[in-house]
Nucleic acid binder design. Structure first.
Lengths: 350, 350
DNA sequence: CTGAAAGCGCTTACAG
DNA sequence: CTGAAAGCGCTTACAG
C-alpha cells in the first residue's frame, strides 16, 4: 500500500507538503498542490487512518454499546446513530452486549483501547465496572434510552410515563381490571421506570399491582414466554399483560399460542416499543412507540458537542400510545380485519 | 491516559520489558514480570491499540459490510459474525449500505482506511468501484449471502434452489397455477438467482412466468408494496406472490391489507427468509429459512483462514421450506389458529 | 510556501 | 534476561 512517502517522491515534494494538501492547509502553492493530487491519483493513495489517529490523538470514531442488536428497537437506534454520526464526519463502531454485563464491559474496554473519541451507551445493568471506569476516566460519554443514575453523563431518552398513563386509561376504559406487567431487569432504568409508571397509573384507578402480576423478564423473548406462562398458571390470571419491550411481547404471544389460547379474548396484550410487524400480527398489537430515530440523532449531537468542547444537553422526548386490536378494542367484525387505521393518542398534558 | 512509558517508569524497567510482559514474551524474569504487572494494575494501564496496530500492521479487526441493518436477516448475520470473530480474537466493524452502492463504497473505503485485516461483504450491487478495487488490491475478502461473480473471492451462502423447488411443488399441490414473484435487484446474485430458480421450478410444471408476474423490488418493504399493488391491478392477478425477502413480504402484506383483501383467500403469500414474527402474523407465513448463524460463522472462519495464511473455502449451505398458513394450506378451522405446528420440508435430493 | 525534524505509543531485531 | 534504538505513517511547530 502506498504511503505518504511514495506520494512525496512521486510528486517531488516533502511529506510535509503532501500532508498539507491532504489536510487543506492554506499555505501550499498551486503548483505543489496539483502535483501532489496527481501523485495521489496515480498511486491510488489513501491516508492511513491508524497513523493519523496516533498522531492527532483523535479517531473521529464513536463507540455505541447497545444491549441487544437483535431487538429491532436498538437496530433502528443504531441506524440513526450511524447516519447522524456520518453527517458530522464520524464513524461508529457498534458493540452488542446481548444483555450481558460482562460482554458490555468487553466492548467498552475494546472501544476504549481503540481510542474512540466518545461513547454512546444504553447500559445493560446498573453500571458494570468497565462502564463506571470509563465514565470516571473522563471519556466523553452520553447515555441513550437507558442510563445509570448518579453519573454526570447526559441522558437522551424517551419518557414513557405519559404514554403508559394513556395506555392504562385505555385499558381501564376497555373494562380491564386485572392488569399484569412483564418487567425488564430492575437494574436497568427502563426496567424499573416502566413498572413504576404502570403502578402509578393503576393507582389512579385504585387498582393494585400485586407481585404475582409482575413478571420478571430480561427484555428477551424467552423471559416473556416464561412470565406469561406464570400468569396463565395463576388461580386468577390477569386480563391483560403489558410487555415492556417488543421481544418479551413476542414471547408472550408464543406462550398464549402454545396453550391454544387467543389474544385478546383469553388474554389481552400491549407492548412497549412499536415495530412494523405489529400491524400484521394476529391481532395487531397495541403498543407504545418511541421516537427512536430522533433519539439516535439527539444522542449523537450531544456526544459530539461534548467531544468538540461544547456543552452537551440531556434530551427527553415523549413516547406515544398507538392503539390497535390486541386489548379487546372494538373494531370491524371478526375475523381478519381489513384496513386497520392506526389511531394515535397524543400524550396527555403533564 | 497512562502510556507504556509511565508503566516502565513505575516498574523501574524499560518499555521493551513492559512490552514483553504484555505480549507474553518468554524471556522476562519473574521479578520483572511481577513489577510490571503491579505497575499496570496501579496505573490502570491499557495498551493503545492504535499505536500497536501502526507498529504491527494488523488491527485484529474485520469489516462487515451488509446491505441493510434494518433487515432482521442481516442483523442475525451480523450478530453471528461478531460472535465468531470475538471467539477468534477479532473485533468487527459493521458498515450498513442501506442497499445504496455509494454508501457501500463509503464504508468499504472507510474500513480500508482503518486498515482492517479483512472484509466480509454482502454486496448491494454487481460491484461498485470501491468494492472491486478492494478485491483487486488483495485485501483479504469473503462474500456472504450475496456475491460478485468473476472475482477470486470465496463465497459463503445458502443455496435456495432446492427450497424454492419445494415451495413451488407445495404451491402447485395446493392448486395454485398463477404464481408471481417479487424479485430483488437483478444486479445482486440473490436478486437474480431466486427468480431463476422460481422460473425453473415452474417450468417443471409447465407453468410460465410472464413478465407481468415479475415485480421488480429492491429488498425493501416499500418496493414489495408497490409490486403487490401492481399485481392486484392486473386484469388477471396472480393467486400467489413469492416475496424474495422478508421486508418485501411485509410490504406485500401492507398492500393487501390496504385494499381490504385477505391472505391467503384473496392472494396467497410466501417469503424468502424466515423471521420469528412470521409465526404470529395473520396468517402465519410460509417461508424459506436460511441457516443464518451458520453462514455468519462459516464466513468468519473463511476470512480468518485467508488472513492467517491458510486456504479459505467457499461454503454453500441448504435453505429449507417452512410451511405455515399463508398459501391456503389446510389447517384447524378458521378463525384464529391455536398451536400452529411448524412443518419442515427437507430439501429434496439434487 | 517549503522542508527537516520531532514525536504520537507501541514492537522487535540487535547487542550485551 | 534486558535495554537502547529504529521505525510503523502520519502531523505540525519551527526555521528559512
Amino acid at each position: 500500500m502506498a504511503s505518504i512517502k511514495d506520494v512525496a517522491a512521486e510528486a517531488g515534494v516533502s511529506v510535509a507538503t503532501v500532508s498539507r494538501v491532504l489536510n487543506n492547509h492554506p499555505s501550499v502553492s498551486d503548483d505543489a498542490r496539483t502535483r501532489v493530487l496527481a501523485a495521489v491519483e496515480a498511486l491510488g493513495y489513501r491516508p492511513n487512518a491508524v497513523a493519523r489517529s496516533l498522531r492527532t490523538d483523535q479517531t473521529r470514531t464513536l463507540g455505541l454499546v447497545i444491549s441487544d442488536v437483535l431487538n429491532p428497537y436498538f437496530t433502528e437506534l443504531a441506524r440513526s446513530v450511524e447516519e447522524e454520526a456520518r453527517a458530522l464526519g464520524y464513524s461508529v463502531i457498534i458493540g452488542n452486549a446481548d444483555e450481558r454485563p460482562e460482554l458490555q464491559d468487553h466492548h467498552v474496554r475494546t472501544l476504549l483501547d481503540r481510542r474512540i473519541d466518545g461513547l454512546l451507551v444504553s447500559p445493560t445493568d446498573g453500571g458494570s465496572p468497565g462502564m463506571l471506569d470509563a465514565a470516571r476516566a473522563g471519556t466523553p460519554m452520553v447515555f441513550v434510552d437507558r442510563w445509570i443514575p448518579g453519573l454526570d453523563v447526559p441522558v437522551v431518552r424517551a419518557d414513557g410515563r405519559a404514554a403508559i398513563r394513556d395506555l392504562v386509561a385505555h385499558l381501564h376504559g376497555l373494562g380491564h381490571r386485572r392488569l399484569a406487567i412483564i418487567a425488564g431487569p430492575a437494574a436497568t432504568t427502563t426496567g424499573s421506570e416502566r413498572v413504576d409508571a404502570f403502578r402509578d397509573a393503576l393507582a389512579e384507578y385504585r387498582i393494585p399491582l400485586p407481585d404475582a402480576y409482575i413478571g420478571q423478564g430480561d427484555f428477551q423473548a424467552e423471559s416473556g414466554r416464561r412470565a406469561t406462562e406464570g400468569f396463565l398458571d395463576l388461580p386468577e390470571p390477569p386480563e391483560v399483560v403489558f410487555a415492556t419491550d417488543n421481544l418479551m411481547a413476542l414471547g408472550a404471544l408464543d406462550a398464549v399460542r402454545a396453550r391454544g389460547l387467543r389474544v385478546p379474548e383469553d388474554l389481552a396484550l400491549a407492548a412497549f416499543d412499536d415495530i412494523r410487524w405489529f400491524v400484521h400480527t394476529d391481532p395487531p398489537i397495541t403498543a407504545i412507540a418511541q421516537p427512536t430515530p430522533e433519539l439516535g440523532r439527539a444522542a449523537v449531537r450531544a456526544l459530539v458537542d461534548r467531544i468538540e468542547g461544547r456543552v452537551p444537553e440531556s434530551v427527553t422526548l415523549p413516547a406515544r400510545l398507538v392503539v390497535r386490536r390486541s386489548c379487546g378494542e372494538p373494531g370491524p367484525a371478526q375475523p381478519p380485519v381489513p384496513t386497520a387505521p392506526v389511531q394515535t393518542v397524543r400524550r396527555s398534558k403533564s
